[in-house]
Design a protein around this nucleic acid. Structure first.
Lengths: 230, 230
DNA sequence: GTCGGTCACATACACAGTGTATGTCAGTAG
DNA sequence: CTACTGACATACACTGTGTATGTGACCGAC
């Protein structure tokens, strides 16, 4: 297969790829709503006719963009996980790779911000099951299965973990690039701790020790300002 | 102040309230994008002129709806926190209250799903700082300050925590109502464990024990299927 | 080579929805 | 009673998606 392609086919594929690239750029910088198909087409000296020839709708164009991003990302995360000697360090490596991936403003914006908007939350999440979310889910499942994590329901644990990591990445991608190394460290620390909380040896119900717990008899109000309740 | 209002003022306020209620219902059931101002107005036997008289734009109408939801929710969470005897149990109580709140499909959909879509992620998050996010942030800050949690950067910890909880609530609100009690239990367990992971006595870097770690000499590939890398 | 068909795109139009400018009439103050 | 203000309704302009139709370049057959 993959015989030589006719000139027309080559042109067509090039057009499609160019549309995809232009759309990726506009979606990632302006967002889904503010991106008009007219502009996308104009970016490559074409008209909306070309867009509708290659993609059935604006939403379909976005999905193609998202798929491309997720394909790349997921293969990286999977590689990082499998390269590690055991599931636990694999999970940590995948976490690092995920944070790295989210630092890419295109990935972050397209997948985490515009995805739910363009495809609807349901559609986005359904699509995610093929990609990063699905990977997180299988990793969590494996960690639980091998006793690295407490016997928690996989779906709930994966869900919260996935979104915690994604949120962190998303916030980093939005921040001033100069702050990112610091944020990366901070978010990484928080996430590793949260993951550690899922380990079987942690007892979530034991009350924490606090050097101030028995201090002077303050009232129950411990600081958070009164909320007006009209 | 608050003297007797003229009949016109009373009518006007009633109209505004009715518009708000109709908009809330449509936004919560159909979503922001699929809600037309024509329909909102028709719900109360009025026209779009009434909407634009009371609200400067569709976005402003949505913000009024969201503000109303968040006002209620935040005062509940704050009350739950302050009613507890100490910050730690206050945080757990607020977590429970948050999950309860998210079970309300109107709150969940308006705040967590449509909010970012309608106001843009930035606008939504900026608005959240006044409400639930701000509350989570101050609670986390207090826990850290009093030694209940490890000395983590408050912003990062609050951010991840807030979104982890919100995601859990959001997923519950979307699930079949019959499944919610079970999900509520599962998500609650995961979230309490994650919060526990932030306690000062948990060492996130100590590798976990696993009964399978030294088993038969498998390759580095520990189960997650190969990802095609085209 | 040329001829009919097809494919890649352009052009033109229908439709929905927001926002805005203007009109109208009830209610209120003097 | 009158003049005015405020609460809406009506009409229109504009933007953007989607769709139906047109057109010219390429491709295979003879």
């Amino acid at each position: 297969m993959a015989v030589v392609k006719s000139r027309r086919e080559q042109y067509s594929e090039a057009t499609r790829a160019a549309l995809l690239a232009a759309a990726t750029h506009r979606f990632a910088t302006l967002g889904y709503a503010a991106t008009g198909l007219e502009d996308v087409a104009a970016d490559i000296q074409a008209t909306r006719g070309a867009v509708y020839h290659h993609f059935s709708s604006k939403k379909a164009l976005f999905e193609a963009v998202l798929d491309e991003q997720e394909e790349r990302a997921t293969s990286r995360l999977g590689a990082a996980y499998r390269a590690a000697p055991d599931p636990w360090s694999g999970a940590l490596a995948a976490l690092e790779a995920f944070l790295d991936q989210c630092l890419d403003p295109v990935y972050s914006r397209v997948v985490w911000r515009e995805g739910p908007i363009a495809m609807g939350w349901q559609g986005w999440h359904h699509s995610e099951e093929k990609y990063a979310y699905g990977l997180v889910e299988s990793i969590i499942g494996e960690l639980v299965e091998h006793g690295y994590l407490a016997a928690l329901p996989t779906a709930a644990a994966a869900d919260v973990t996935f979104h915690a990591i994604g949120t962190a990445g998303h916030r980093m991608a939005e921040a001033d690039p100069a702050d990112r190394p610091r944020l990366r460290t901070e978010y990484g620390a928080v996430l590793r701790r949260m993951l550690a909380g899922l380990r079987p040896d942690v007892d979530p119900d034991r009350p924490p020790h606090s050097e101030q717990q028995q201090r002077s008899g303050q009232s129950a109000d411990h600081g958070v300002g009164e909320q007006s309740t009209p």
